[in-house]
Design a protein around this nucleic acid. Structure first.
Lengths: 354, 354
DNA sequence: ACGGTTAATCGAAACGTTTTCATTTTGGCG
DNA sequence: CGCCAAAATGAAAACGTTTCGATTAACCGT
C-alpha cells in the first residue's frame, strides 16, 4: 500500500539505477514489487514462457535491469530438479590426453547449456568413489567417468544409483554402463603391423603404471594380435612397464636398454610414454627413427610439436569427448537408452619416428 | 498413522535394505519418518551439529543407511546460501599451461571442500563474459579468472557485482581485483640475461597471438630490460609474432629464418612457442643448442620430455594455482581482504637448449 | 517436594524459484 | 447489451534443506 507503484523512482535519484536495497542481490520478489506485478508473472517473462501482455513485459524488463536481477540458479535447480551440471571425473587434467578430452567435453556440454564440474581422481579408486558421491550429492545431472578401469563394489553401487553415467575411454570390467571408447585393439594392431611390415622384428611394448585408464589391455592385445598375425615371435622381455611419466619424466627406455635385449622398434601404450622413450633413447645416443622406430598412441597435440613428429595412432580425443558428452546428455534428458556402447575408430598417423 | 513406526521392516523383506519407496531418492523427511523423529533432529546428526542423544543418533544413522539417504546439496546451498563451487575460467584446458594450473586449482579447492567448475573461454572476451554471468547465476562461491587480459566494461561490471574474483596469471589493466601472478618481467630478464652472458647478441623474442593471458607484455619488457642492461642493441626485426601454436602446430621460426635476419638465440614467450621454434629450426637443419640457443617460459611438463630438455623459466604453475585458490577461498569465506596482490617468483631452469 | 537450570527434541519459517489452479479481465459475437 | 470463451494475472504450494524459538523432559540442590 505504501509502496511506490511505479519504478521511475524519486526525482532526486540521479544515478543510472537504484543500488540494490540491502546489498543482497535482488530476487524475483524485488522485481515483482518494483514492477507492481505478481511473482509468477515475472517468472513468466524471465523464462519466456509467454502469456504476458506487452505492457507488463516491458515494465518487468525495466525493473529487472534496474535491479540487475539475475535468477538464482540454485533455487531454480531445486524447484525443477535439474542443475544442468555435468561431472567429469578424470585421473588428471594435467595429462594432455585428459586435457584434450576435458576441452572437448566442456565445449560440447556448453553448447547444450550444461556446465562441467572437473574432478581429478589422481588415479585412485578411493577418490573416484569420493567424487562420485560428491557429484551425486551436488545433484549433477550426469557423470562422465574416465576411470582407471579398476572394478570396485562401491563404484557399482554408485553408478547404479539412478544418476546417468557414461564411461569414456575405457570400460570398467563388470560395470554395465553406457560407454564410449576407441577401438584400441584394432589401432594397436595397425600400428604394430605397420612396424612389422617395415621390416622390424624386435618390437617392444612399453606401458606406464598410470594408465589403466587408456585401455591398456586392449592395446596390449592388439600388439600381440599383430605379432601372431605376422608370425613374429613374442618375447616377454620386450614388454616393459615404466613408472609414472607425467609427474616425473622418468627413465623409460632405460630399462629396456639396460636389459641388453635387442630391439629395433617400440610401440608405446600412449604418446607420453612414447615421448619419454624417445627422450631416453636420444639421451643414450640412439637415433630415432634411424636406429629405432617408435610409435605412440592417442595423438596428443604435443607429440606433433617436435621434429620429427611422432608417429602415432589418432584416437580422436575430441570426437571421443564429444560423443560421450552427447550420450550423457541424452541419458540425462531421458532420450537415450542405457547401456549402449559406442566405438570411435582410431587410425594410424605417420610422423617421422616410424 | 498407518505408517510403520519402526524400521525393521516386514519379516518377509529379505533384501539388505528396502528399495527406495517411489524410486525417487530419499529425503530428510523420509529418514525422519522412518526413524520416528523430527526433521531437525535428522539434520543435526547429518551435519554433526551435536545435541542429539546417543539413542536417537543410532536410530537415525540406521534409517539413513537403510534408505541410502544423501543430503541434497542444492537444497542445502539454497538454504545456507553457499554452493561450495568455484568457477575457473581459462582460455583452454587443452593447453598444458592451463591444464597444470587447473590441476592445482582443483586439488587445492578440493582439499578445502570446494569443487571446481571448468570454463574454457577459447580466448574470447564474449565467452569470458558469458561464463562470468553463468557462474554468478549458478551461485558459485567464487571465480578464478585466467583472462586474456583484455579490458571490457562488462568484465568490470561483473567482477564488481559482489562475487569474489581472483585473477590469476595476469592482471587485467583497469580492473581492480585480487590477483596472483608470476614476476614475469624479472623472469624474462633473467632468461635473456643468461643468454647474453653466454655470449649471444642476436636474441629473438618470439610470441604467439593466443597468449595475452600469459602476461606477454611483462615478459617482453623483461626482454628489453636485459638488452638495455647489457647494452645489446634492440632490433625490432628480431621480435616476431607467430600464429596460434596449440591448435595447429604452425611454422614459427620459419618467418624469422625466412626473413634472413641473423640470430643466435631465441627467447620465447612460453614453452609451447619455444618447442614450436625448436621444431622448425631442426626441420630446417639448424641444431639446438649448437647453432641456436632457445629458452622458453613456464616450464610445462612436456618441455622436459625431450632431449635435450628445454631451458626455461619455471613459473611454478602449481604454486600459482594453489595460491590463487587459497586467496579466492579466503575471499569467499570473508577472511581475506579484497584487491590484494600476490607474486610468485619464477626462476631459470637450465635444460639443454641454452 | 519444588522451582530453576540445562539438555534434548520438535515445529515452523525461510531460502528463491516454478507451476498449478483459481480468478480476473478482455473481447467477440449473438 | 449480455454471455462465454479466451487471455492475462495472481495466490499459494512445493522443492529439501537449515535454524530459530518454543516446548518438553530430566536433573539438581536446597
Amino acid at each position: 500500500m505504501q509502496a511506490e507503484s511505479a519504478f521511475q523512482g524519486t526525482p532526486a535519484m540521479a544515478e543510472p539505477f537504484a543500488r540494490d536495497l540491502r546489498d543482497r542481490p535482488a530476487t524475483i520478489k524485488d522485481v515483482a514489487k518494483l514492477a507492481n506485478v505478481s511473482i509468477s508473472t515475472v517468472s513468466r517473462v524471465v523464462n519466456q514462457t509467454g502469456g504476458v501482455s506487452d505492457e507488463l513485459t516491458l515494465r518487468i524488463e525495466g525493473a529487472i535491469s534496474a535491479l540487475r536481477y539475475r535468477s538464482n540458479g540454485v533455487a531454480r535447480a531445486l524447484r525443477v530438479n535439474a542443475t544442468r551440471l555435468l561431472g567429469f571425473i578424470v585421473p588428471s587434467v594435467a595429462n594432455p590426453t585428459f586435457g584434450a578430452l576435458a576441452q572437448s567435453v566442456e565445449q560440447t556440454a556448453n553448447e547444450r547449456g550444461y556446465s562441467t564440474i572437473l574432478c581429478n581422481s589422481g588415479g585412485s579408486v578411493d577418490n573416484e568413489v569420493r567424487y562420485l558421491r560428491l557429484l551425486i550429492k551436488q545433484q549433477a545431472d550426469g557423470i562422465l567417468f574416465n576411470s582407471m578401469g579398476i572394478y570396485d563394489q562401491r563404484l557399482a553401487n554408485l553408478t547404479n544409483s539412478g544418476i546417468p553415467v557414461v564411461v569414456v575411454g575405457r570400460k570398467i570390467p563388470g560395470l554395465p554402463t553406457t560407454n564410449v571408447t576407441t577401438n584400441n585393439r584394432q589401432g594397436a594392431f595397425d600400428a604394430v603391423s605397420y612396424l612389422i611390415n617395415k621390416g622390424h622384428r624386435r618390437i617392444a611394448f612399453v606401458f606406464g603404471v598410470y594408465e589403466s585408464a587408456t585401455a591398456l589391455e586392449d592395446r596390449y592385445d592388439g600388439y600381440k594380435d599383430a605379432l601372431r598375425q605376422y608370425r613374429v615371435p613374442f618375447d616377454e622381455r620386450l614388454v616393459v612397464k615404466v613408472p609414472n611419466v607425467l609427474d616425473s619424466a622418468e627413465e623409460a627406455a632405460r630399462r629396456l636398454i639396460d636389459s641388453g635385449v635387442a630391439f629395433d622398434g617400440v610401440f608405446a601404450s600412449n604418446d607420453l610414454i612414447a615421448l619419454s622413450v624417445i627422450k631416453n633413447l636420444e639421451r643414450m645416443g640412439f637415433r630415432v627413427p634411424n636406429d629405432v622406430c617408435v610409435m605412440g598412441y592417442d595423438m596428443i597435440p604435443f607429440s606433433q610439436m617436435r621434429y620429427p613428429a611422432l608417429s602415432t595412432v589418432d584416437s580422436h580425443l575430441d570426437q571421443l569427448g564429444r560423443e560421450a558428452t552427447i550420450q550423457l546428455i541424452g541419458l540425462a534428458e531421458g532420450m537415450a537408452d542405457n547401456h549402449s556402447e559406442t566405438v570411435v575408430k582410431s587410425e594410424i598417423v605417420l610422423g617421422g619416428t616410424a
